[in-house]
Write a protein that binds this DNA or RNA. Sequence first.
RNA 1: GCGCCCGUAGCUCAGCCGGAUAGAGCGUCGGCCUCCGGAGCCGAAGGCCACAGGUUCGAAUCCUGUCGGGCGCGCCA
Length: 569
Amino acid sequence: MSGDYLSLFRSLLGKAWLPRFQEWKQPGMAEKILIERPAARGHGDLATNLAMIAAGAVRRPPRELAAELADDARQATELAGHIETVEIAGPGFINFTLSNKSLLGAAREALAAGEGFGAGTAPKPEKILLEFVSANPTGQLHAGHARYAAYGDSLRRILSFAGHDVTTEFYINDYGSQMDLFGRSLASRYAQELGRDVPFPDKGYLGDYPVHLAMRIIAEAGDRYLEEADPELAPGAGDFFKLIGRDLVLEEMRRVLEEFRVTFDNWFSERTLHESGAVKQSLAELEKAGEMYEKDGALWLSTTRYGDDKDRVLVKENGELTYIAADIAYHRDKLSRGFDRLINIWGADHHGYVPRMKAALEALSHDSEKLEVIIGQLVNIVEMGERKQMSKRAGTMVTLSELIDSIGVDAARFFLVDRSHDSPMDLDIDKARMQSEENPVYYVQYAHARISSILRKAREAGAGADRPLDAGPRPELAVQERDLILKILEFPGAAASAAMTRGPQRLTAYARDLAAIFHVFYHNCPVIKAESATAASRLALCRLTRNVIARCLGLVGVSAPEAMQRAGD
RNA sequence: GCGCCCGUAGCUCAGCCGGAUAGAGCGUCGGCCUCCGGAGCCGAAGGCCACAGGUUCGAAUCCUGUCGGGCGCGCCA
């Protein structure tokens, strides 16, 4: 946790106050110290509400406790040099004003920490498997997938930065009745394109996409598979085509995801679980553990024993396996790979599935606490002020590819991740396109470009752009300069909070704040034009600010440009 | 009917392990470019934090209920 000044300050306070906690017989109090930035400027740089928390336990007036704590802080050798003033205010807040020297020292350390500033905040680093998107390989990725892709990939970056060992995985649902239907739809379109009438299956995959796939197959292989496409001649026609189709679809998905800056360490095929016997094996294990029973000709798993609201069928009456049978084997496989935690990102339409999956893991004597399912709310497409459901059939589907084309990767990723994953989102594609130039992402990127420009100018002028932050004495700091440093010092906390709450929007919000504070600093504090020592110090502060902005953007997969193109060009 | 999520400025949404005067972007109105990038800054208007109770010194935040919206409740995936 290098460069985390606020944590350091907290632990110094804990040390200074330890005798007082012992006197109050509240030895655990040090854990409860919460350091915040007060909302109002008159309330100092940092504040703690500890006296008010303690008042309840000690049964004494908060202001009285605050007075004692404030005295201790003023006299503590640990804090000497860090603190300018300590004041009590309101119902019992203790407000600290930090010394310029301490602030500059903190900024210097943050700069020296470089890439490591704010990294490694996880209290207990874990080996994590993060599974997301996992779309059926039967069509294109849509805006809903885009949301989960942006969210999941940001989470990968954020959790890794916090010190976790993260592996990402895309589960390919390439087995079962949907795939069969897809294969038969594709076979039919292929034959039809070649002039042979092979009937289109009932409830098959409509739309242009299977037709495009068929045409691609023709472009590559001509009519070579024509006999294969006809179920009259080849009983396994669907099987043949679904595998070709799957590969084409996956290739396309991978390409679009990469363009969206989302990559997966593993692509895991459901089919392989059936072929390797892994599904049968986990069924046998459940059977052996006495967790299964037969009813109505089907095989059931007693998930109700572990909190599910009804038992679930694993083997259907007709002998086919249900989706969850394979999913159990899949999660068993994940756990066998030695992960401390499995994080799954599922759409809200799958949330009812969580209890049965956890129950299944319990039935296999696994700790279901290891499975963390994050439910992402859905994306509504808004057109002409009207909400439409995302539907492949109704043609109201906006694809990831279209989204990238209309607003670009940066704006799309920032937009998708800027609101919390558990509130539903409206996406008006036309509005998004029109407003793309006013997207908040540019506000943050502009600050980065502006700083880059200042640093370029300084370097050209030989103004010492690379001099260390503490070059020369700097007894004075402008308020805007103090605000900027204090905001930067919040970064490790923001990154930690984003990781802990699985909330990338903490970082986009933080980045916006930081950019705003930088713009204010810029308008009030000359950098290059300041006298030499001040200029050197401010240039270093600019570098630090740029690093942090770039880091925030990088953690959500958004680029940090050295220069912005002018709007309207 | 039961379960999960959401209800905060005109719009899109942060804040939700309780804290001081509730924030941002967009939109509206008024200022600021001989000066390091005006995609910026400064100011103004705009809020019973859905509603009603409860816990607390203190509630947008925690608990209960009501209303409104989304999503589930398959031998589909």
